[in-house]
Amino acid sequence: MKPAAFDYVRAESVNEVLEGLSKEGGNARVLAGGQSLMAMLNMRLAKPRLLIDIMRLKELNRIEEQAGVVTIGAGVRQAALLAWPELARTQPLLARALPWVGHVQTRSRGTICGSLAHADPSAEMPLALIALGGEVHLRNARRRRRVAATEFFLGMMATARAEDELIEAVSFPARAGERCAFREVARRHGDFAIVACAAVATSKGVRFAVGGVADVPQARDWPRLDGSALDDALNGFAYELDARDDVHATARYRRDLVRIIGRDLVREVLQ
């Protein structure tokens, strides 16, 4: 269980990263915290020709707050964000969801942007991005662009990032999730979610997002709902997610959790 051979570049500037990506395209992989990619390399699921290590780039290692918008660079580790003193004030949903990401020993290395790039349907960070309406900052050698969360995740482990693009940062809008709730059900503590749910109060009502069920996290915006109207909305959403069976849970179980946890969370944020 050893990786296939690859070249390794320890990038000393972002330009080097972009140059490498533009030359090698799909044969290159950006190595950040490595908590997903390295396991895939060891299992030989992934066999890139080139790894570009971005973790020595100080310019990518920044958490910035501007008028409430929080921008997290590609090199920011999950543990670093969790330890950021402004997190609970600016992005309470992230503060609640982050402790569910893996374990202490993986959060210490894994990055926020790496988790988004990996786009595991059960992962917490993509769910939070969808729930909060964040943006992914992409950059190649020629241009920068921002992609909204809903446009970024295309399918299981598939994103809108082009092969020559680096995820430079991710940003979460100001005041998003001021009133929020998060709950996750997994087989064991720290496992990938069977169902993870986030609810965020919006100006018109509530946004409710679910991870772990469909191929990408999904969100619905609802007005202030309660009673049977809420139950109907949740029921419809549960079915739309097209849940399926695997060794850890059945589709029905996942739909049940969406309905039950959804009701609790929506009520909690609408109180």
């Binding site: 029921n235 079915y239 097209d242 849940a243 850890h248 589709a251 029905r252 179980y253 739909r255 049940d256």
Partner: peptide
């Protein structure tokens, strides 16, 4: 497994809303 226990205990599932395809 929790999902297996749930299947043994829970009653019939709520129907999908009208107009929406079944699972």
């Amino acid at each position: 497994v929790p999902a297996k226990l749930a299947d043994l205990v829970r009653g019939p599932e709520p129907e999908p809303p009208t107009g929406q395809s079944k699972a």
